[in-house]
Amino acid sequence: MRHFFRAALAVARKDWQIELRTRYALNAMLLFAVVTAVLVSFRLGPLGLSRDRQAATTLAVLLWVAIFFAALNGLSRTFVREEEMRTAALLRLTTPPLAVYLGKLLINLLLLVALELLVTLLFVALMNARIAQPGLFALTLSLGGLGLAVATTIIAALVAKADGKSALFTVLAFPLLLPLLIVAVETTEVALAGSGWAQAAPGLRLLAAYTLAELAASLLLFERTWES
């Protein structure tokens, strides 16, 4: 098992090195996030929203719109590049399939953490967003991000095998992620408004359950996807 986790870490590290040198995914994601936040802020922020009673709702929706679409811009890159650069074959020959999945999941998580941090900072700076419960907010974004990473990683593996990859990624990911997004928006709203942990608990449980279910499905189905 030690070999296995070392292999998974090696995959993540290799992708991180490549990402730092090319910045394909990071640039696409972060620029999208900045453009979204700036565009939204022009009309709504920083003072426009604070006068609004529904500010928490609006902010939560916009925050997840920015995260979701920015993520879909970048998260398929690591898999798609393996197929396009024809390195997938050697990776299949050398690396246990699940180590590839976990490595890619790890790199996508890293990318998402960077993205969520940036989006949060932008919203605080440009929209004057006040986070009433920072702990809950961080937990929601972490759980939501984890679920997003788990689901998008396996879909990226699917999409990498198909033509018209970038358009297909959104089409495939959106219906699967809808339950996650709905709950994440709602729980983020609770965190922004500060309605308390009790209000957020069912949402957090759903996020965790969704993430676990998709993770289990991914672990079972990844080898088939990867070896197709």
């Binding site: 290799k14 090195q17 490549i18 040198r21 650069m85 024809r86 390195t87 074959a89 050697l90 020959l93």
Partner: peptide
């Protein structure tokens, strides 16, 4: 335990 060298099996250009 298999080593493969083939034209359609690439290594990482960025590394």
């Amino acid at each position: 335990f298999i080593g493969v060298v083939a034209p359609d099996i690439a290594v990482y250009r960025e590394l």
